[in-house]
């Protein structure tokens, strides 16, 4: 009986990994040919996989072993984020004060605003905790989520949505409010919209890109340190 169950789950796990890899490869192709928020790899692939799992009569629990295997390399990938920080260190050293102030205040304000709004709008507690860290780069946010009693999948969804919103809204918002300084523009994009914001900032220019890369890393560190204290207070 036990072995039979294991054999089935092994097959299921193989199927889940295959479907996930396939969806990812397909989404990368699609995103290159038809760039749009709908073809973003995570959004497109996750939607496709959920549909396939539902069609095959599989549940979240059946997918879990496959998930654990596939996220194994997330840790080393996060550690790799030290490389862009290291490469852009000169930009930080030349502009230490404005950079630290901008990313610190921005991180604090966006976290506070999200928590307050979520509370006013009456969102459930698990959403409030998860939404508070939506500006933290995803690999760190998913590890931070359980510490502040948030949910990992919800956090991923909010982080990615925030990446898109900031990238679409940010450059325009800063232009109409007179924020033209390249360092400040990159800093704001990286602080609020992490990796996606950094990619956008790179397209604006080299200094913007470097500032965003630094802001993404340091804002994640800053928010990781304050969230465990602030979130339980405001939640």
């Amino acid at each position: 009986m036990g072995t039979e169950e294991e054999a089935v789950s092994l097959w299921t796990t193989g199927f889940c990994i295959g479907v996930t890899l396939g969806a990812y490869l397909l989404s990368r192709r699609l995103a290159r040919r038809y760039p749009s928020p709908l073809t973003t790899p995570v959004f497109f692939s996750a939607t496709l996989i959920i549909l396939i799992l539902a069609q095959s009569g599989l549940r979240t629990a059946d997918y879990e072993p496959a998930q654990r295997i596939m996220v194994f390399l997330l840790g080393p990938a996060t550690v790799s984020l030290a490389v862009p920080l290291y490469k852009n260190r000169q930009t930080l050293l030349r502009n230490t004060l404005p950079a630290l102030l901008g990313l610190g205040v921005g991180s604090l304000v966006t976290l506070g605003a999200a928590l307050l709004l979520a509370r006013i709008l009456g969102l459930p507690e698990v959403i409030r905790a998860s939404i508070s860290i939506k500006s933290v780069t995803a690999p760190i946010a998913v590890e931070l989520a359980p510490i502040i009693h948030g949910s990992q999948p919800l956090t991923v969804a909010f982080v990615i949505a925030t990446g898109m919103i900031g990238t679409m809204l940010g450059p325009w918002l800063m232009t109409i409010t007179g924020i033209h300084d390249p360092l400040s523009r990159g800093l704001a994009l990286g602080t609020i919209s992490h990796g996606q914001g950094t990619a956008q900032a790179v397209s604006e220019g080299e200094l913007q890109g470097a500032a965003a890369g630094i802001a993404m890393g340091l804002a994640a560190i800053f928010t990781s340190c304050i969230a465990p204290v602030v979130v339980p207070m405001l939640r």
Partner: peptide
């Protein structure tokens, strides 16, 4: 809707405050 509103407003405020404070202090 409440989630979308929370995400959009908090991102917009965050970007504005972050960019403006860095620009002011830089100047």
């Amino acid at each position: 809707l409440a989630i979308l509103l929370t995400l959009v407003v908090s991102a917009a405020v965050g970007i504005w405050v972050s960019g403006l404070s860095a620009q002011r202090l830089g100047a």
